[in-house]
Write a protein that binds this DNA or RNA. Structure first.
Length: 463
RNA sequence: GGUCCCAUCGUCUAUCGGUUAGGACACAUGGUUUUCAUCCAUGAAAGAGGGGUUCGAUUCCCCUUGGGACCGCCA
């Protein structure tokens, strides 16, 4: 049997971090089982679906390294088929026309609310003859949901889930404008696409019970279901668009690496023994639905930073540099060739105290900007003694070619001796003058990372 | 409110009846260092509560409590 998964977002907004994880889990499982991973754009809500979001979703997945098999499937293109199935269900007696107006339904809901009882559609038209239909109401088609008995779904993550059929109302499958609703479209498409495993957020659990009834009515094979727990905000609620840093774009913007985010999302709600860092291949090999927990997990930004830091420090420096370059041109300022060279040469220490690409960018400012700005506190440290040291340093430095730690070290040492100070006494004023802050990289690194003329210019400005 | 679900350090989690309840992040302390950071070491930190079952429960069952999801002619 073929193993087919899908990710089916609706293009009504930028891709949400929870959606990204759903996509990742689907992709992982498909890859692991040598199956297919499809992308289906569920754009049947004409009002809210936007083409730009569709594009954004596709590029977001591409950024994460999750590529789908084949063309993306556009749900709206299959509407005719959905309608055909609705008619078939109608013909077979699994569905019926409901002539209740929206107003009528709303009134019922109001009434229930007032009485404090839960609203369920009263199934008014379920068995009604169509003889006395109101002429002025366009009917909707409702699925004739089972009234008695129970339905059990053996969920691959949640285990056996049992629900009393009476709690499922006669849901609408075709609107009054003859357009299909989600329950119908998703089911028909999953069937047509031969989806074998439906992996989605736990908020879809009820939908699976509804959709199972459609599968059964049509005599279609019901796919396996796996409902993964939702990601919660730090407030412990389902992540919504209002929460900070909830879209993929937000993470890219602060300089999170794709591999790091993939790794973080993988470990959120899933684990494999004590292992924390997974390469892409490892995640494919090791991932399984058994390892997925049942309870929702909270988003932890500090953990994302930490994993990102790990990746920044361990990946190949050329690769890191390329990420930085892309990041700079997309979110900051493109690097010119001269600066590119300077940064790539110094990346080994610029990355050292960075958790994100943005941090590296910030650490690189003293190289990228022509002038350094020294804040007031640091300025105070540049007293007369410090200036004398800088002056002495300039004299020696000007004479030195071939700048390296080996040639610079004797200079610094002699300054320490002559000025009866320690390394800090020499390093700090130089660092402040060259970087603009006393919290900078090692002084040898700083000097080597800057053009000789710039070093002299910055130092002379101080004395 | 109705239906369903969940429950181990602050957070992500390991444990699949017997462990000094382990790891990671974050936090604290100490050390290395050229400032900041890194790095290293150490520390504090958890089975929600109550009943069962069992020789023995974090683990299995029930109740309570707490938390969540769903309840659209959205997907």
């Amino acid at each position: 049997m073929s193993f087919n998964c899908r990710f089916a977002p609706s293009p009504t907004g930028p891709l949400h971090i929870g959606g990204v994880r759903t996509a990742l889990f689907n992709w992982l499982l498909a890859k692991k089982n040598k199956g297919k991973f499809f992308l289906r754009i569920e754009d049947t809500d004409k009002e809210r679906s936007k083409d730009e979001f569709k594009k954004q979703i596709i590029s977001s997945l591409a950024w994460l390294g999750i590529e789908h098999d084949g063309e993306e499937y556009i749900q709206s293109k299959n509407i005719k088929k959905h309608i055909t199935i609705a008619e078939e269900l109608l013909k077979k007696g699994f569905a019926y026309k409901c002539y209740c107006s929206e107003q009528e339904i709303n009134e019922q809901k109001e009434k229930c609310k007032k009485q404090g009882i839960p609203y369920v559609y009263n199934r008014k038209w379920r068995e009604a003859k169509e003889l006395n239909v109101p002429k002025d109401v366009q009917p909707v088609i409702r699925f004739k949901s089972k009234i008695s008995g129970n339905t059990i779904i053996k969920d691959l993550v949640q285990g056996e889930r049992n629900i009393s059929n009476s709690t499922i109302e006669d849901f609408i499958i075709l609107r009054k404008d003859k357009s299909p609703t989600y329950q119908l479209s998703a089911t028909v498409d999953d069937h047509e696409m031969k989806i074998s495993h439906v992996i989605r957020g736990d908020d879809h659990m009820i939908n699976s019970f509804k959709q199972k009834q459609i599968y059964d009515a049509m005599g279609w094979k019901v796919p396996e279901f796996a409902h993964i727990p939702l990601i919660h905000s730090e407030q412990g609620k389902k992540l919504s668009k209002r929460d900070n840093a909830s879209t993929l774009e937000d993470y890219i913007k602060i300089g999170i690496l794709s591999d790091a985010l993939r790794n973080y999302l993988l470990r959120l709600g899933w684990s494999h023994k004590d292992k924390e860092i997974f390469t892409k291949q490892e995640s494919i090999d090791l991932f399984d639905l058994n390892g997925v927990g049942k309870s929702p997990s909270k988003l932890d930004l500090s953990r994302i930073y930490s994993i990102n830091e790990t990746y920044i420090k361990t990946i190949d420096e050329k690769e890191l540099f390329n990420y930085l370059k892309d990041y700079a041109s997309k979110y900051k300022k493109p690097l010119n060739q001269v600066k590119e060279k300077a940064i790539s040469k110094s990346l080994s220490f610029l990355k050292n105290k960075a958790k994100t690409l943005e941090d590296i960018w910030k650490n690189s400012q003293y190289i990228l900007n022509d002038k350094v700005e020294i804040n007031a506190d640091d300025r105070k440290l540049l007293n007369d003694d410090a200036k004398k040291i800088i002056k002495d340093f300039i004299a020696n430095y000007e004479k030195t070619d071939n700048l390296s730690k080996e040639t610079l070290e004797p200079i610094i040492k002699s300054l320490i001796e002559n000025h009866k100070t320690n390394f800090k006494g020499v390093g700090q004023p130089l660092r402040i003058a060259l970087v603009g802050t006393r919290f900078g990289p090692g002084i040898y690194d700083v000097i080597k990372s800057l053009d000789k003329l710039i070093v002299l210019e910055r130092l002379k400005k101080i004395i």
